[in-house]
Design a protein around this nucleic acid. Sequence first.
DNA 1: CGGGATCCCCCGAGATACTG
DNA 2: CAGTATCTCGGGGGATCCCG
Lengths: 224, 224
Amino acid sequence: MGSREYGQFCGLARAAEVLGQRWTMLILRDLLVGPRRYSDLVAGLPGIPTNLLATRLKELERDGIVVREARDRPDRSIVYRLTARGADLGPALDALGRWGAATMHAPRDGEIVTDASLTTALRVAAQGGRAPDQQSVTYTIRAGDAVAHAVVRGRQVEVAPGESPSPDLVLTAGPGFRDLLAGAITPEEALADGSVEITGDPDLLDAFAATFVVPYATRALDNR
Amino acid sequence: MGSREYGQFCGLARAAEVLGQRWTMLILRDLLVGPRRYSDLVAGLPGIPTNLLATRLKELERDGIVVREARDRPDRSIVYRLTARGADLGPALDALGRWGAATMHAPRDGEIVTDASLTTALRVAAQGGRAPDQQSVTYTIRAGDAVAHAVVRGRQVEVAPGESPSPDLVLTAGPGFRDLLAGAITPEEALADGSVEITGDPDLLDAFAATFVVPYATRALDNR
DNA sequence: CGGGATCCCCCGAGATACTG
DNA sequence: CAGTATCTCGGGGGATCCCG
């Protein structure tokens, strides 16, 4: 048994052999947002040793999860893209992200938010909410140095990193923004205490809070 | 940033800090089946260093995922049990197991099946199938040295490790059993080529194959 | 005998410098 | 931009030992 295998004919063991390697889940999180260059990945994963990123990308390519695209690029840049098999990890990684977010109250010291993590968080949040019936609405969300935007058309929510050219509402996350996503505070309270600052129609903040929901884990009194 | 953290305020990063540690996913897989003693875990995880198991259990306890129950046990044994927070990992780990199983054709050299992994596989398989309308049916499934049993009542499927006292059908998995679960071969073919051996009513094998389904990943021709 | 703790070795991760 | 090279160091693997 190699240092990566578990010696068990088990689906979870096979998944653990891939995802249990350090940094792999975060690399895949960023690639789930879209194809990325090596330097994009380095920028979105502060602290990752560059040799480790190179090793992981090779492993993921060998395992059929990622493809390295070099040819047919006029700008000669190299792009890493998920295969269909890699994209199949989306539901599982979203479920893990939802589980992790359920006890995530405030950032630990020095913790940052990246465009990819914010985009992922909003994608997961969109699965937990239910957009009110209305025409197309575009949000831009800022959290720390990260920016993402979301376009909501009926039940359809599309989230992408970066600015939106023409947002209906711009939200800037404050210290209690996570509480707003959990429904622990109302949009009105969030505005009052600086949990969120907005530019645009305040009524749209109610729509936002209904569309994007990430509940907190209920603290069981009896912990069994 | 410690050697376990990622320095990102991100749900998936938080999950990775727990599940990215070696052996942790398999420990949780076994505990999802039910409370287990230290020695049960050692037996179900061949190759795990005992000190590492002890370390992991302490970390999981500190993180509120596992509780250690010592008191009130007449036989003085210690049992590890998932908290509500730990049990919340069920859907995410099942999704990971489904992803891993989708490309799992045959065991690699020396790979084994444990009671817990077989039980987990059947639980995941029950989510992918649809039991035909019938009265209560009990199956006993053997794969390698592992044994599990399942009780199917309508849409309700309950899977547990070990023998069933009174099974309606006993299945012993052969080399092509995985193909049967994927629907790549019919129950008749599976019987003919030794992919499965049964004791009991052969018609129940059709019901089994409809109830427990784990599809193979479709091999995309265009791998994007 | 169940439930660990201790020890040593070594590989993989971190950090940083360097290169095609 | 996209990695490779090199070094150091901590955590995992493996065996053994210990304690109630």
